[in-house]
């Protein structure tokens, strides 16, 4: 399937918004960017590598030549791009279960948005506004964002152990090694293939 490369899924969605509502949404994003706790849930869910929302005004679609017909639109559009781990259903289930309120603030301004709860109409809406990805690349297809963060913690712990292990006695080293083990013991899961979507 084209939307998936390795452990990561590329989602694209586009939703129409009445132009006056775009300003409210911009205001919300401004807050989201500046109030860290609002982002905390996204971080804690920890299944998105990168995501972005792009508001595109109805008169600002790129126009590269006079021969290209100008767009003639009534709505502004909200584009959403996400690079997430897990299956489509898992992703939307989790969003709906724990991020419902935040998502509503983002998509509430889009036409016909049903709300993130209950999940079935929410999924139907996403399925309708999603469009497919033709080509998708990731530099580390075998790793989820959890894997990446775990790997960086292991790297750091290893560097610390290595720095301190120069002139130590075997006994001292062994102690440091146990401390090292305890510090990385939650971060050693192997990387590899992901299960397939349902």
């Amino acid at each position: 399937m084209t939307n998936i490369t390795g452990k990561t899924y590329a989602m694209n969605a586009i939703t129409p918004m009445k132009p006056w509502k775009t300003w409210i949404l911009r205001g919300f994003f401004f807050l989201l960017g500046h109030i860290k706790p609002l982002q905390a849930d996204l971080v804690n869910l920890s299944f998105i590598h990168f995501a972005r929302w792009v508001v595109i005004r109805r008169d600002s679609f790129p126009r590269l030549s006079a021969a290209q017909p100008a767009e003639d639109l009534q709505y502004d559009y909200l584009l959403f791009f996400s690079n997430f781990n897990g299956t489509w259903n898992q992703y939307i289930d989790a969003f709906s279960a724990v991020l419902g309120k935040g998502l509503n603030l983002v998509w509430f301004w889009s036409e016909k948005y049903p709300g993130a709860v209950p999940v079935t109409p929410f999924k139907q809406y996403i399925a309708r506004v999603q469009f497919e990805t033709d080509f998708y690349y990731t530099a580390y297809p075998h790793a989820t964002t959890n894997d990446v963060k775990a790997a960086h913690r292991v790297q750091q712990a290893l560097d610390t152990l290595a720095d301190g292990s120069g002139n130590t006695s075997p006994a001292e080293f062994e102690q440091a090694y146990v401390r090292f083990l305890v510090s990385v013991q939650r971060d050693l899961g192997s990387t590899g293939l992901a299960p397939i979507g349902v």
Partner: peptide
């Protein structure tokens, strides 16, 4: 290019 309204990067 479009300017991103809100960008999230986990790492």
């Amino acid at each position: 290019q479009l300017t991103t309204t809100f960008y999230f990067a986990d790492v």
